[in-house]
Design a protein around this nucleic acid. Structure first.
Lengths: 235, 235
DNA sequence: TTTCCACGTTTAGTCATACCAAAACTGACC
DNA sequence: GGTCAGTTTTGGTATGACTAAACGTGGAAA
């Protein structure tokens, strides 16, 4: 029996093989992976290698490996992709200008979304925006809840184009920028300011005015950024 | 001595610790990781765990682990992040509508970039665009070269905002969408069409007309998409 | 002196075995 | 039929061993 692989990376072949089986639906979503002992027999490898393969698959986001449970196949969605980069992004954000750069892309993306919303939003989209806005308004006194509804309002913008990539990006932004936000002082006063900004954006979309929608949104996020700067200085 | 960790995931702690040391510059970029034997002693763990940790760090993109070499610390750039998701994205693109969804975000992003370019491009930016356009024009008869210069032209758009995240995104798009493109028929005729589109975009930016720039760009990429559809049908 | 190669020394890759503790399963008991 | 205790799996880790490739060193050759 070939005890030693020729290429020097037997684990990678197993990773590839299992990844392929997942992609082809051979290992369906939600199903637990075969036990490590079975896999070692199946591939003719030691458990060491199996474990390394499982590890890799896990950090690639193709399986979900909770501590003492059987790894579960997780057919990756766009947000699994977001998870996979989380570690790197953390590093990047800790570098000077990192947060700024990320936030700038957020401004750019949401500006484009606001513009698109003003042009293409359906009646249902507008209704969803209105609902989110009202939920946001109802929470001005509860900063915790305001934070959630604030996010939800922005989230509606990401849903309007009906592209599943976008909500994943929204989740990425909120996840990665959360550390900054969670340390910021939350005051009903600020909530009211932000609510006003949300309403302005909503109005511009309602008026089908892309330029205004973009401008209001940029203004809103730029002010949010100014608050971050106030709290953290340069980041 | 505590032979078994209480949490059930000693490796993750090691991963976190080493990641932190990399982030803080304790393990500088380009330096090889300490030998596995040293790490096991340092952390008081077995080699099994060390290896799993190294594996994880590697697939997270924080170190580069060539087959039989010492893993090398690789302070991740934005494009290391792109690598990390490659595996998942492959899966996503193989599903119906996957390529379409990704390409739509590209249209959205580049539309925003074109708009921004029309508003904010400096003289140098315009010069860079012009240069890229001329290189593109010089390559109409050489489809291979035209492909490269085409990419480069779009790449300039991603460079204008001076945000390092954006070029990484451009690389991501070209990498992930390359499989489709590389199988498409390349004809000087099509090259000329695309060149004309590029020129139209350039002109709009030169005229400082954001609406026109966005419109020309959307038109350009939509036609490119139509060609993809022609070649592959629904993807 | 510089270059280059043979040699011994690390070190990553893998295997085999063993143990523990937490899950998962099974069956008896209420 | 539902609950709980006991048994069997299964993941997490440790230990030791062996192979082959990479590395480092010093001496021989140019």
């Amino acid at each position: 029996m070939a005890q030693h692989d020729d290429s020097g990376r037997a684990a990678d072949q197993v990773v590839h093989s299992i990844a392929e089986r997942i992609r082809l639906g051979d290992l369906p979503d939600g199903q637990p992976l075969p036990p490590e002992r079975d896999l070692m027999e199946e591939y003719g490898i030691s458990r060491t290698v199996v474990r390394e393969a499982v590890r890799t698959l896990s950090s690639r986001g193709l399986i979900e490996a909770l501590p003492r449970h059987r790894p579960v196949v997780r057919k990756p969605g766009f947000d699994a992709a977001i998870d996979a980069v989380g570690s790197i992004v953390t590093h990047l954000l800790s570098e000077p200008g990192g947060v700024r750069n990320l936030f700038d892309t957020r401004i750019m993306v949401e500006a484009a979304l606001a513009r698109q919303a003003a042009q293409l939003a359906t009646r249902d989209d507008i209704a969803a925006l209105k609902e989110a806005l009202e939920a946001n308004a109802a929470a001005v006194e509860d900063s915790e809840e305001f934070y959630r509804t604030d996010n939800a309002f922005h989230g509606v913008l990401y849903q309007i184009p009906q592209n599943p990539v976008l909500p994943a990006i929204h989740r990425a932004y909120t996840t990665w920028l959360a550390p900054q936000w969670s340390q910021m002082p939350r005051l009903p006063e600020r909530n009211r300011t932000n609510l006003g900004a949300h309403k302005a954006i909503y109005d511009a979309i309602l008026m089908r005015d892309p330029d205004a929608a973009e401008a209001r949104l940029r203004d809103h996020l730029s002010k949010a950024w100014a608050q971050v700067r106030e709290t953290f200085g340069d980041v």
